[in-house]
Amino acid sequence: MKNLKVTTGIILVAFLALSAMSCKNETKKENDTIIAEVAQNLTTISFGVRGNCGMCKKNIEKAANAVDGVTNAVWDVEKKKIDVIYNNTKTNEMAIHNAVAMSGYDTEKVSGNTEAYNGLPGCCQYDHEMEMNQMK
Rank of each mutant, 00 (worst) to 15 (best):
I60F: 08
K58F: 12
C56F: 01
A64F: 04
A64L: 03
A63V: 06
D83N: 14
G69E: 02
A66G: 12
E78Q: 15
K79G: 04
K57R: 11
I85L: 13
T71M: 10
W75F: 12
N65T: 14
N72I: 10
V67N: 11
I85E: 05
D83P: 01
I82P: 00
G69F: 01
V77G: 06
N65Y: 03
T71I: 12
A73Y: 00
N65Q: 12
A63P: 00
A66E: 11
A66W: 03
A66C: 07
N72K: 15
V74G: 11
I60A: 05
K62C: 07
K62G: 09
V67P: 08
G69N: 04
D76I: 11
I82Q: 00
D76Q: 12
K57Y: 04
K80M: 07
V67Y: 09
A63K: 00
D83M: 10
N59P: 04
I85Q: 09
T71A: 08
N59G: 04
W75S: 01
I82H: 00
D76K: 05
G54L: 04
I85P: 00
V67E: 07
C56V: 03
A66Y: 04
V67C: 08
E61M: 06
V70Q: 03
K62I: 05
K81N: 15
N59S: 14
D76R: 05
V74N: 15
M55T: 13
N65K: 10
K80P: 01
I85H: 04
M55E: 12
I60Q: 05
D76E: 13
K57S: 09
E78I: 13
V67F: 07
W75L: 02
N65A: 12
A66N: 10
A73S: 12
A63E: 00
K58C: 07
I82W: 00
V77R: 10
A63Q: 01
D76N: 15
K58T: 15
G69K: 02
K58I: 11
K62E: 14
N59Q: 11
D68F: 11
N72Q: 15
D83S: 13
N59K: 12
V77P: 02
N72W: 10
V70A: 06
D76G: 09
V67A: 08
A63D: 00
I60E: 01
D83V: 09
G54T: 09
V74S: 14
T71V: 12
D76S: 14
I85K: 09
K62M: 08
K80R: 14
I85R: 06
I85N: 05
V77I: 15
E78K: 14
D83T: 15
K57G: 01
C56G: 01
V74K: 14
E78G: 15
W75D: 02
V84F: 03
I82M: 06
W75R: 01
E78A: 15
T71C: 07
